[in-house]
């Protein structure tokens, strides 16, 4: 019970500090669950995040459910998600009831223009940190670069990229000595990546 309460409070905090959707959640979540609470590792967050991208639903909800479930079973998953959703829920109710026109105040625009700059820097920091622990050679760097370019320049759906990256990972794992691999992928799982 106490653990569930702690989970709720932690995710409530993360939810309250996440401005701008799922991506902005990561730096805050990472700080709370790996640095402050030491509940899980950065690698695990990356795994959950990747899976959250290619499964239905909101990334933030999926990631919260994953972390909560890992710590306290399915009830933990539900509680963590509830905790994450509550602050946004309350704020939107407030917006809907009181000030439908918050965006009419210029000062709000200025404040959020400032906040967005900070969100950018925080996401870059998260990227650097996660990159250091997951990019260990040409193969992983190739996946990183291709996913980045495909998303930015060609708007390829993230779910597709995550699934392809998973397949590539398996194919590369099939070849024992793994010197290098390109971005081309092979759909036949039986063959293994041959060069």
């Amino acid at each position: 019970m106490k653990q569930l309460l702690e989970l709720f409070i932690s995710f409530f905090k993360v939810g309250a500090m996440t401005f701008g959707g799922g991506y902005a959640m990561l730096p805050i979540l990472e700080r709370e669950v790996t640095v402050n609470k030491k509940w899980i590792s950065t690698e695990e967050i990356m795994d959950y995040y990747a899976i959250g991208q290619c499964t239905p639903g909101l990334i933030a909800v999926n990631t919260s459910t994953f972390v909560g479930n890992k710590l306290a079973g399915p009830a933990g998953g539900v509680i963590a998600t509830l905790g994450f959703l509550t602050p946004g829920f309350l704020v939107i109710l407030l917006v809907a009831v009181l000030l439908n026109n918050v965006m009419d105040y210029e000062v709000v625009h200025h404040a959020f223009a400032g906040v967005r700059v900070c969100v950018f820097v925080l996401i870059v920091n998260t990227c650097i940190k996660m990159g250091k622990s997951s990019i260990d050679g040409l193969f992983t760097f190739g996946i990183f670069a291709v996913v980045l370019a495909a998303t930015v320049f060609f708007s390829v759906p993230p779910a597709l990229l995550v699934i392809l990256a998973g397949i590539l990972g398996v194919l590369q794992g099939l070849r024992r000595p793994a010197p290098e691999s390109g971005e081309k992928q092979d759909d036949d799982p039986g063959k293994g990546g041959l060069s």
Binding site: G20, Y23, L26, E43, M46, D47, Y49, A50, I51, Q53, A113, R116, V117, V119, F120, I123, V124, T126, C127, M130, G131, S133, S134, I135, T140, F141, I143, F144, A145, V146, V147, L148, T151, V152, P158, L161, V162, L164, A165, G166, I167, L168, G169, V170, Q172, G173, L174
Partner: peptide
């Protein structure tokens, strides 16, 4: 081992997606 290899590919993809998010925030903030 297959699951582990899959994650070996998934993690850098995850970082790539976060970097792409950074780029889109960059466009609206800077």
């Amino acid at each position: 081992p297959y699951v582990e290899s899959a994650f070996h590919g998934l993690r850098p993809a995850s970082v790539g997606l976060i970097a792409a998010a950074a780029v889109s925030v960059l466009q609206i903030s800077l």
